[in-house]
Design a protein around this nucleic acid. Structure first.
Length: 420
DNA sequence: TCTGGGGTCCTAGGACCC
DNA sequence: TCTGGGGTCCTAGGACCC
């Protein structure tokens, strides 16, 4: 039996923790460049604002003056997420965080009634101590637990925030009410294709012969189908495994044409990527840099390219990675284009406890490792870029636009000021 | 005027080998 | 006129997720 805990409207709920005036209002949190809607309050959902809606299109759905739009503060959200997960971890078995706002776990007791009581209590405590509303769904497979969680969230008054999807008859009824596009693992393309065959609900989908699903679609979709039928297919949990790639990328606040300006951004991205590698105890075997123009500007010539370079020795050393990333960038840089986005990606990642440098110089190896560790410690304590190895700007011309931070709440201001 | 960032897995097809 | 067959490895691209 799997449990799935999911924070409701997570980013909006985080903002509300620090500013109760947002309660009951149409609130959305915007993506990095204040570009698209990435979280919505129930009120905003009810007003018809879709997920991923570009901010300037909100007016197509509702009066934008009635919508509170906020720039995202991911550091704050991560911090509150950690607190939620800490409480959960004390109560459940085998907690596996799946994303910033959700986690799977295994049922603590076999006895359903006791478990329900325990979980309902956990839901209450998370609300009380962290301030975040969460919902819990239980089912025999992860895919069904997703469905159950959906119901827990929707019918909160009936469910206490906890819903069990266990009895075969109940599963059958619920699947008949679940539109095919709401199933975890079935996105826009697949649901369109399935609907064209007359498959409207999860129940319709389950009736298809699995062999047909496999041959005409994929093994992935067949697994989704089997999970809906109650057979645990152990869809690999990304949390179990270390990251295979690590990427840092940003859309610039405006179109950039200056090479050095973009190089500054690349340095910044490479530093972050290296730091994350060290935090995970990993080393990268190669580094890729990519740049691209503005895909929405049809009046400008579009250029997009990437370059992947292999490292002599897998490493997580900032200076080596910055050098490689810049090298790759100079390979793909073309004069005369406008650039809107760039990124640095670490690939061929393997486990490695430290910085591996030139084997001929064990002394320097030790020194450099201590230097990196010290810098990471200082930055973890005083903010992510207190100490830098490279002369990149704190906020370059390329920095994303974020003009909607909630400054109404003094507490929030103070709090994020400390942890940034 | 304004359109995110970070991941995963699977598959088809090409290169290459015997 | 005739143009193998089977295997592996790698990569690009598509689909999905939050």
């Amino acid at each position: 039996m799997y449990g799935l805990v999911d924070c409701n409207n997570f980013f909006v709920s985080c903002e509300r923790v620090f500013d109760p005036r947002l309660n009951g209002k149409k609130v959305v949190v915007l993506s990095n460049n204040d570009g698209c809607v990435i979280a919505r309050s129930n009120e905003a959902k009810a007003a018809g604002i879709p997920m991923g809606c570009p901010a300037f299109k909100i007016k197509e759905h509702t009066d934008p003056s009635q919508v509170i739009q906020l720039s995202a503060r991911h550091i704050l959200y991560r911090d509150l997420s950690d607190r939620v997960m800490q409480i959960l971890d004390q109560e459940v078995v085998n907690l596996q965080q799946y994303s910033v706002d959700e986690a799977f776990f295994v049922l603590p007791q076999e006895d359903v009634e006791t478990s329900h009581r325990v979980m309902a209590d956990v839901v209450k405590r998370i609300k009380q101590y962290v301030g975040i509303p969460v919902s819990v769904g239980f089912a025999p497979t992860r895919t069904l637990a997703k469905v159950a969680n959906h119901i827990a969230k929707k019918d909160r008054r009936i469910t206490d925030g906890v819903y069990w999807l266990v009895r075969p008859e109940a599963i059958d009824i619920i699947l008949r009410r679940t539109p095919i596009e709401d199933v975890w693992g079935i996105g826009r393309r697949l649901s369109a294709s399935l609907q064209a065959r007359g498959i409207k609900t999860a129940a319709d989908f389950v009736k298809l012969p699995p062999s047909l699903v496999r041959s005409q679609y994929s093994v992935t979709l067949e697994r989704t189908q089997r999970e809906l039928m109650g057979h645990d297919c152990q869809i690999a949990n990304p949390v179990d495994i270390a990251h295979k790639t690590i990427m840092t990328s940003r859309t610039f606040g405006k179109i950039i044409t200056d090479r050095d300006e973009i190089a500054d951004a690349i340095v910044n991205f490479a530093e972050r990527t290296a730091r994350q590698l060290r935090n995970e105890g990993s080393v990268a075997g190669s580094i890729m840099t990519y740049v691209r123009g503005d895909r929405f500007r049809e009046d400008l010539p579009f250029y997009s390219n990437s370059c992947q370079l292999t490292l002599d020795t897998p490493t997580n050393d900032t200076m080596t990675i910055v050098r490689k990333a810049l090298n790759a960038f100079y390979h793909i840089w073309r004069e005369g284009f406008g650039y809107r986005k760039a990124g640095v990606m670490a690939l061929d990642i393997e486990h490695g406890s430290g910085i591996q440098l030139n084997l001929f110089d064990p002394d320097d190896y030790g020194k450099l490792r201590r230097l990196m560790t010290s810098i990471d410690n200082i930055n973890n304590m005083y903010g992510s870029r207190s100490v830098k190895l490279t002369p990149s700007l704190q906020r370059g011309e390329w920095s994303p636009n974020q003009n909607h931070f909630n400054t109404q709440s003094k507490t929030l201001y103070f709090y994020t000021g400390m942890i940034r």
